[in-house]
């Protein structure tokens, strides 16, 4: 599997949020590192087809992002997401499953499986409005996985998670990365250090580093700062 970003540029009026990005992402976990405002979310949104690039193309094994079949294999956790006020955790997952085209039976099975996976089975019938930030984030992760996606895009997935949840989440992502393309954006270096196979660093809309994590022979935090200073 191959996700290809070719000459991607995104302009917002006079601001260039992403500048001529070229990158090919393969199966495994890819960490997108960068400071706030570096362009990570814009890249993520373009990969999901939520934002249209000003220039360039994005394709998955030759399939254009605008194709509905592409959306069938996509799982996305946005940085900020909401829910309808009347939704309970289970309703929310079933709603997303229905929108993603899952039939009722498989949606129910998948929903229970994911609620268990993210430790929300006990509160499945409680309103989301009563959930803590971490619980909402776990529910967000569950909805991203409901259609067994091949491409999983997670924008700041660890935000709001406590240390225990973070470890659990890292293991889950590591498992998913074995057979899928997982891209996670964060500005927390340790998150990427433990789960990513490959690192992409962004600064001012440009990729300033692209490499395997095993090739970095120093502390990732130090390497990250060094790359940022040099760029």
């Amino acid at each position: 599997m191959e996700l290809e970003l070719k000459n991607i540029t995104k302009k917002y009026k006079d601001k260039e949020a992403v500048k001529n990005a070229n990158v090919t992402i393969h199966t495994g976990v890819t960490g997108l590192l960068g400071a706030n405002g570096a362009g990570k979310t814009t890249v993520m949104r373009m990969i999901c087809g939520v934002l249209k690039p000003t220039e360039g193309t994005i394709s998955f094994d030759g399939l254009n992002v605008e194709d509905e079949m592409y959306r069938d294999v996509l799982g996305y956790l946005p940085q900020d997401f909401g829910y309808y006020p009347n939704f309970k955790a289970r309703d929310f997952l079933l709603y997303i499953a229905a929108l993603k085209g899952l039939d009722k039976e498989s949606a129910k099975v998948k929903c229970e499986e994911l609620l268990k996976k993210v430790n929300l089975s006990d509160v499945a019938n409680k309103k989301i409005s009563t959930f803590s930030g971490g619980m909402k984030q776990r529910l967000g992760i569950a909805q991203a996985l409901i259609n067994d996606p091949k491409i999983i895009i997670l924008d700041e997935p660890t935000a709001g998670l406590d240390p225990k949840e973070r470890v659990h989440f890292r293991n889950m992502i590591g498992e998913l990365g074995k057979n899928n393309i997982v891209i996670l954006s964060t500005h927390i270096v340790s998150d990427v250090e433990h789960i990513a196979d490959r690192i992409l660093m962004m600064k001012d809309g440009e990729f300033i580093y692209d490499g395997e994590i095993k090739d970095i022979n120093m502390d990732l935090e130090e390497f990250y700062l060094k790359e940022f200073e040099e760029a």
Partner: peptide, 14 residues
């Protein structure tokens, strides 16, 4: 209003 736009955009139905 409920910040569901992005989630609903990446489903089968646009």
């Amino acid at each position: 209003r409920h910040q569901m736009t992005e989630l609903e955009m990446v489903t089968r139905f646009s």
